[in-house]
Write a protein that binds this DNA or RNA. Structure first.
Lengths: 141, 141
DNA sequence: AATACGCGCAACTGCTACTGTTACAAAATA
DNA sequence: TATTTTGTAACAGTAGCAGTTGCGCGTATT
């Protein structure tokens, strides 16, 4: 994967957390399960913490935990927390030299904005309990 | 831009072509107008030719032309011709080791497929006449 | 036939973004 | 105090893409 690796890692981890919200997990264990590096895990989960989805603690009994009930965390929350946007939107500081560019930008950005809203609406319909799987394996649960 | 540069170049060029479908344009002129390189133009427009949207000819009076009426070329045609996909979809040859990954992939890919369809539907509603601008400037028209 | 013109294509060079890795400081606990 | 775990900065490796150069091929002009 390329663009979705952060999102995948985040959702995968949240899926496991949704099973056992009380358990505190350390980044090393999460990384081992996901086949990546603890620092990468901290980077990604750090974004989720900034968005208020997770809490982290240092020290002996430290690690990562859900900041609220799994029912109250949707896929849209995660998507927004990671700043993933389908259409690279923001600061469109480009000069539109000719009228074709004007018309083009107007049409395309309108469509993209609508699609982005559609995506967010669909992602909002699913919370992370829905992706917690069923069997009992993984990360010591 | 990053991911949209090919799409922008393609649509920009088609917008101009929609104004004067008879005129044949050479890649050097198109590149000069778009602020890029003739080879880049040929690469991008080459994809549109493979999709049957454009024709190109060598030699003295050679260059690029629309393969059919501008009313019959929609933004969706261009999007598909360039193989742009919102969700990197195709060969999903990844091992889904745990049930969370299963559930996650199922949910996310379903949402993404639906959004992709939404996008294509919206893009299909606009043909390249709509992005041809209005004023008379650019590329010698 | 010879020449000029424009596309087709391959190869190479930066540039950018991202993941992975190492190293170290800060916080919390035994 | 010593240990554990996060937080963060710095750097290497990788992949994708735009840009560039060079050359071959087809086509129109002369």
């Amino acid at each position: 994967m390329k663009r979705n690796s952060r999102l995948s890692l985040a959702l995968h981890t949240l899926g496991h957390m949704a099973r056992d919200p009380e358990q505190t997990r350390k980044s090393a264990d999460i990384a081992a399960h996901a086949g990546t590096n603890p620092v990468v895990v901290r980077r990604v989960l750090g974004s989720l913490r900034e968005a208020g989805l997770l809490v982290s603690e240092s020290g002996h009994a430290g690690g990562w935990r859900l900041a609220r009930a799994p029912q109250q965390i949707t896929l849209a929350d995660v998507y927004l927390a990671l700043d993933e946007r389908l259409v690279a939107p923001q600061a469109d500081t480009e000069e539109h030299n000719c009228s074709v560019e004007h018309a083009l930008h107007a049409r395309v950005s309108k469509v993209m904005a609508e699609v982005e809203q559609t995506l967010l609406a669909k992602l909002s319909e699913t919370n992370i309990l829905a992706i917690r799987g069923s069997a009992d394996e993984g990360m010591g649960e």
